[in-house]
């Protein structure tokens, strides 16, 4: 229930970190051996919630997604399962490869975008709102089928310019606090922001259940929180900028283990 007073403390925390960061402007990549999931930065109690499916509240959305997977929708009267069969087999490893190239547009599309596209173009149903409960549940259910598998970004040269654009965003200072993603997550991941650990920003557990949200949320929602944190105007949900950033982050986390549904503070 943290209210406005709590928010003020967080802001003070960010400002405090700024003093440290301005004296340290280089943006070096994290070496592969040093990469750590956000899970490793959490308290043992929070890790325990993620580790146990009977206690992990993210599993409630996996359950909802499993129900939606077999539910017929739209004028085509088809369910996801009508085409894809059992997700346990057909969707295994799929989320680990997203965002992927969308042949029709020649641009990358993320998993949520692909599911939404399937829904409106193949099932012919009404478009699902991007951060709505149903699309989140379906995305969580599909991503959960890749849990334990290594993140495996597609080796497709057509994605390179978008990945480069994502890296550009990651390393560009923005907002009133004039911080880049890299200022915290490449250069200061072993520091703390007030009481919270600054993590390495590997998107291993998305969609994930954030205790702060009291619900499940997308990677783009988390990125929006970061941008608000540095007082930048967040990109629009589903925008090319966000997809490019997601694409770069998944490349940066290549080989790390998928955790969906992750738990984070």
């Amino acid at each position: 229930m943290p209210g406005p007073a709590a928010r003020l403390i967080v802001l003070t925390g960010v400002t405090g970190l700024l003093i440290v960061l301005t004296s340290h402007a280089s943006t070096d990549d994290i070496s592969p051996g040093e990469r750590r999931s956000g899970r490793d930065f959490m308290a043992p109690e929070t890790q325990a919630i993620q580790a146990d499916d009977t206690a992990n509240p993210g599993m409630l959305w996996v359950l909802q997604g499993a129900g939606l997977w077999t539910q017929k929708a739209g004028p085509a009267d088809q369910s996801c399962a009508s085409c894809h069969g059992a997700a346990q087999a057909s969707m295994r490893g799929v989320a680990a490869r997203y965002p992927a190239l969308d042949a029709a547009t020649g641009k990358p599309i993320d998993l949520t975008g692909r599911i939404a596209q399937c829904r409106s173009e193949r099932q012919g149903g009404t478009a699902l709102p991007r951060d709505g409960d149903e699309l989140l549940a379906l995305t969580t259910f599909v991503a959960h089928q890749s849990r334990g598998m290594p993140i495996a970004p597609p080796d497709d040269a057509r994605l390179t310019p978008f990945r480069d654009a994502g890296r550009q965003i990651f390393t560009t200072r923005m907002g009133q606090l004039d911080l880049a993603c890299a200022s915290c997550h490449d250069d200061n991941w072993n520091q703390r922001l007030a009481g919270s650990a600054v993590t390495q920003a590997h998107p291993t557990g998305y969609p994930l259940y954030r205790l702060e949200w009291q619900g499940i949320g997308s990677l783009q929602r988390r990125l929006r929180n970061c941008m608000i944190g540095v007082r930048a105007e967040p990109f629009a949900t589903g925008s090319d900028d966000f997809i490019a950033l997601e694409l770069y982050l998944m490349q940066r986390a290549a080989g790390m283990e998928m955790e969906t549904p992750g738990i984070r503070p």
């Binding site: 206690a55 509240p57 409630l60 909802q64 009291q214 619900g215």
Partner: peptide, 9 residues
């Protein structure tokens, strides 16, 4: 026994 339900509380 464990029980969990989706509810905003």
């Amino acid at each position: 026994i464990r029980a969990m339900i989706a509810h905003p509380m």
